[in-house]
Design a protein around this nucleic acid. Structure first.
Lengths: 181, 181, 181, 181
DNA sequence: AATGAATGAGGCTTCATTCAT
DNA sequence: GATGAATGAAGCCTCATTCAT
């Protein structure tokens, strides 16, 4: 339910009451329990659904054989467009990174995504295209920066124009790329 | 109380019960209410205390007349060392950015810090040292990246060595600096 | 439904959910409400059905003109055999004696059975065959003892052989009979 | 709390709401949870408290070296007097025999009491004083009869005079005793 | 100043019952 | 007739807060 996502984004997991979600969704509290055995199960299901959606989206658009910078650009643009189209969902995913109420299945999904990305980073480093910093750190810098950008967009402090996406992509590429000079 | 911070970092504001904090602090629940009128007041007081502590720390070390990159480097290193020395406090500050239970005073403090920083960014942009992107965005990219780094440190996924601090500082400077070429 | 009886015996009236009964019976929850207007009506109907069944059984086998001890023996054996053949139903009847959700019709049925039995006891006392104790008490002693026997059988603590039925019948007859000596 | 016992006796475990107990006890629902971690814990604690009270009572009055019939008489009278003095508590104990929400500790207590009693029965049988029926069955007959008597007393259908206690004791002794003739 | 028992509102969840299909 | 999704009242329990000691 989209209603649940909005609530969770606004107030967090513990700050959101199940009846609030139900009201927002226009159903009764009991009805939620026909579809989800518990509040935890609900949040996990939502998490996995959207996390895999964003993963699919990037994966689908990913230019397999292209240069690394082009791949980076595509990933950044896809993520940004996703965040622009589904701001609530994106905020939801970001919010729940590493939350204690996520179950093992959700955690496993996270790890898989990260492992895959780390593999790509290592490959690019081996080609001398990225700075020789711990891949985990490089990823955290990039995704952290991206989250920062999206947070500002959510709060209405900036508009997420294509130009801004392009400019921020360039900035973050500069952060991780090994300067040729 | 340091105990409260640990609890809030582990479980979030709504997920932390006042008696839990009291127990962790080794006092009774009632005692907390001698010092703080409410749970919200407690969290706000903690927030302001540590936010101003980190602000003071950066401000004290800040090299007023130095070149911008040097200023950036000092800020980054001070923040990183703070996060290394007070991991719980730093996690606490980061966690509560924009939380709904922060009061106006806390929000005002945030805005002041941000406005000040934005002023510095504008100045550097006017000198042609930083990329001509919305200063708000530049700041979010940098602080977002920094939070990402610290998160990885908190989770034990990386060690926060001086070398890593230096390398990440360089990467983030590359992200925001205007390339001379 | 036999399913309902099993559930009620296992968990009691309040501890049994209507959907549980439905699932056990292999039908949907809504279907139950085609046949019974409410959970209370269901339990009352079951109660009357089986209570009258056991009453019929004893009544049918009852040797009208025989000596009192013979009558007692027949009653005891019939009850015991019923409990052996329909353990769930018997446990159900016993469980719901005097329960607050039994309606007036069920209560009336109980009273009729008891009044009838009490009449027989009085008759036997008048003949000097039973101890001159309040007939209500005599009945409670006998049926209480019988329930105790059956409870042990239900719990698997004893086997309900014909020999045991006979021996316990003799014991309970000794309890109520006036010793000739 | 005596209030809880009354409620449980009236409506059973599942039929009694915690707020009902609290109201009856004149405290708030939350207060109960200062003293008992859960409704189950409450019922178990009450059960053990009163079960051991009745056990103590019989044990204290028990005439160790006396003839078996005298021992039986004492036990019966003590039980009856206890039931007369604490009708709610006695009804409560009886009600919860073998209930599914009793925990292992309570069940163990039951078993210990029963094992002890069974030992005495065996001893008496070896002396040729009791009928040679499975001791478990003899006990169930006697306690079942006793419960029946008390049930009638609870319902106000009989008065529990000393004479009645004596008469019923005699009847139940006749049930289990081996007739000398 | 410190305690911790007491409170009652509110949270998560269940369940008897209804009703559109 | 049968279903099972929907409901909302109510159940168990937690928790921020108060207050007598």
């Amino acid at each position: 339910m989209r209603a649940a996502i909005t609530c969770f984004v606004d107030r967090g997991f513990h700050g959101t009451a199940v009846p609030q979600i139900a009201k927002q969704a226009g159903v009764s509290a009991g009805t939620l329990y026909h579809y989800f055995p518990s509040k935890e199960a609900l949040v996990n299901e939502l998490y996995r659904k959207w996390k895999s959606a964003v993963g699919q989206r990037v994966f689908t658009a990913f230019p397999q054989g292209a240069p690394v910078h082009e791949q980076f650009r595509v990933m950044w643009h896809e993520l940004a467009r996703f965040a622009r189209e589904e701001p609530a969902a994106f905020g939801f995913i970001e919010l729940h990174n590493h939350a204690s109420y996520l179950d093992e299945e959700s955690a496993q999904m996270d790890r898989n995504l990260k492992d895959f990305t780390r593999g790509m980073v290592r490959l690019a480093q081996a080609q001398g295209l990225l700075k020789p910093i711990d891949p985990t750190v490089l990823m955290e810098l990039v995704f952290g920066a991206f989250y920062g950008l999206i947070r500002a967009y959510h709060d209405g402090r900036v508009e997420l124009t294509d130009e801004l996406i392009e400019a921020t992509e360039q900035a973050c590429w500069d952060a991780v790329a090994l300067r040729e000079g």
